[in-house]
Design a protein around this nucleic acid. Sequence first.
DNA 1: TCTGGGGTCCTAGGACCC
DNA 2: TCTGGGGTCCTAGGACCC
Length: 425
Amino acid sequence: MSSIQYTRKIALIDCNSFYVSCERLFNPKIRKKPVVVLSNNDGCIISRSNEAKALGIKMGEPYFKEKEIIVKNNVQVFSSNYSLYGDISRRVMRTLKRFNSDIEIYSIDEAFLDLSNFSDNEIENIGHEIRSIVLKWTGIPTSIGIAKTKTLSKVANHIAKKKKSGVVSLIGIENIDPILEKVDINDVWGVGRQLTKFYHQNGIYNAKQLKNKSNTWIKKSSNVLSSRTAMELRGIPCIDLETKNSKRKSCVVSRSFGKRVEDLQELREAIAGYSLNASEKIRSESLVAKAITVFVRTSPFQRNFGYYSNSKTVDFPIATNNSIETVKVAMVILDSIFKNGYRYQKAGVMLTGLSNADGKKNLFSSEKDEKINSLMRSIDNTNYKYGRSTLSLASAGVQKGWNMRRQYSSKIDTADFYCLPTIRA
DNA sequence: TCTGGGGTCCTAGGACCC
DNA sequence: TCTGGGGTCCTAGGACCC
């Protein structure tokens, strides 16, 4: 029996220590050294090189808690540089698309790729080919897991990360139970902290045990999502590849402040800026929002000054993406939830109920709307040409004493001509 | 001193309707 | 005194993901 088989095959391609790898691209001196990248505001550690992991530096830990290890071991530290990472990500995704246009870009550093059109016997080689081409063309190392379902390809990827070859395929393996038995339940895609606790209470500690549990029990004692996970572990596809770039349903812009903010005027500047930002984002995707939410809060970690957190949502009379309108409503909301005497740590704006903007005329459309729309377009164009926030509204402020900290930025921006690094051939 | 940001989906419960 | 049953829609909050 050597007939050629074409079973369903989903690959999960995951960039290794993605942010660290991006920084290393332009800085060969840190290639073999321990490196970490910090979250916005230099708050937490969100990417670690293998050398940093080996030192015991934990994912998601506050930077200040790991500072001692970092200093002692001369770990290289970077503030996050999202325009750089976004640009490198697009290059990686573009490269992947050459293998199949049926791709789901799952996050900045991960994509699912349908490889069903390759035969079972050649699939592992294809995996190696993808990996080496991505490395050659973008400089980014990846791990690749291939299996019949997305959940299983996550499992395969998890194993691939620990292998030198970086590629693991579960295609054509008759009995995968021995493999699943070695996968902790909390490493299964879709099983977080709460579910892990629940499964442990019920004697389920690894992926094999979940796979062999009855669906009715899972659905009854948990929910449909959990039973889908179990089905997928059995090789039955329940979660489709989402290859169509479907439009998002909400848009959030929020930041922690570089220092605590107590003054309403400063909060107003911040919220106005976030509103502008969010409006611009949804305009660029031709969306309009049905409602806007504003939230403010003090630090949940330092309650000695009292804790306060509040938010409020207001519907627009007519769905909009107009900055002037979003800022105006946001200011009204902020004034209504602001309370004096607190040290605010974070605030944000959320645009929800997004839908397509095109051709949305209604009874109340007017010439004035047209003028505003064209004003928005010219703001967007100018900002696109001359850099972010060239044109803004006065309410967004210019001082921005609350702006986030980015002490360790590599200042590399592949989208900004003046930041372009030079590369030797 | 210092603890990120941006998403999705599901469920329970309330409001409302007939 | 007696106080149904079933449906839809919306929202808040929780859990999960990266």
